[in-house]
Simulated assay, not measured.
Amino acid sequence: MVIPGWLLQHEVTIEAYLGDTSTGPAYGPPVTARAYVEEKAKTVRGRDGEEVTASSTVWLLPTQDCPPESRVTVPAGRTASVITSSLYEGGGLPTPDHREVTLT
């Protein structure tokens, strides 16, 4: 079961991180995605295991690509970097499959 569309009341813009180049990070073209955005500070562990403060959590459809270090613009107009991007897929169980993204 996929997260119900009626829960995804917001729109975010995602620029997927493609990697580093000689001139700095490269990003894909902006993509608009339906989402649920929660603006709430919390402590999370980054990819390197260090504790960092996340300012927002975004829930997306499970098919939405949003790798770590991507840029996401939330409805408030703030652009932030992705700290973590986790896919929650229940393997056929009646759980809401979704992607959870934490932002700086």
Rank of each mutant, 00 (worst) to 15 (best):
L7E: 15
G5Q: 12
A80C: 01
P67M: 08
V82Y: 01
E39G: 04
T104I: 02
G19A: 08
L103A: 04
E11W: 04
D20A: 15
S22A: 10
T104H: 03
L7P: 06
E89W: 11
G5L: 10
A35W: 11
R34V: 08
E11L: 06
A54S: 15
T73S: 02
G19Y: 09
R34A: 15
A41P: 04
P94V: 10
T95N: 10
S85F: 01
S70Y: 07
A35R: 12
L60C: 07
T95D: 08
E38L: 11
P67N: 08
V82A: 02
V82H: 01
T84Y: 00
A80R: 11
H98P: 06
P62V: 07
A41W: 09
E100A: 11
T23G: 03
Y27R: 07
Q64C: 07
G46L: 10
Y27G: 06
E50V: 12
G5I: 05
G77C: 01
R99K: 09
T73I: 00
A76K: 00
G77S: 01
H10S: 13
V72A: 03
L61K: 09
S55Q: 08
R78N: 00
V52Y: 14
Y17K: 03
V58D: 04
R78P: 00
R71A: 05
E38K: 10
V82M: 02
E38Y: 05
T84L: 03
S22H: 06
T13W: 10
E89T: 03
P29C: 09
V12I: 12
T13K: 12
T13D: 11
E51T: 07
T21P: 13
E50T: 14
R47A: 15
E11F: 05
A16I: 04
R34Y: 12
V44G: 11
L18S: 06
G77W: 00
G92Q: 08
L18F: 06
L103V: 04
S56T: 13
L8R: 07
L18V: 04
V52Q: 15
P62D: 10
P4M: 05
S22L: 06
A76Q: 00
L60A: 07
I3D: 05
H98E: 05
G46H: 15
D48W: 13
G5E: 13
T53F: 07
T73N: 01
E39K: 13
T95G: 07
V37T: 06
V2P: 15
E69N: 12
A76P: 00
W6S: 14
Y27M: 07
D20P: 09
G90A: 14
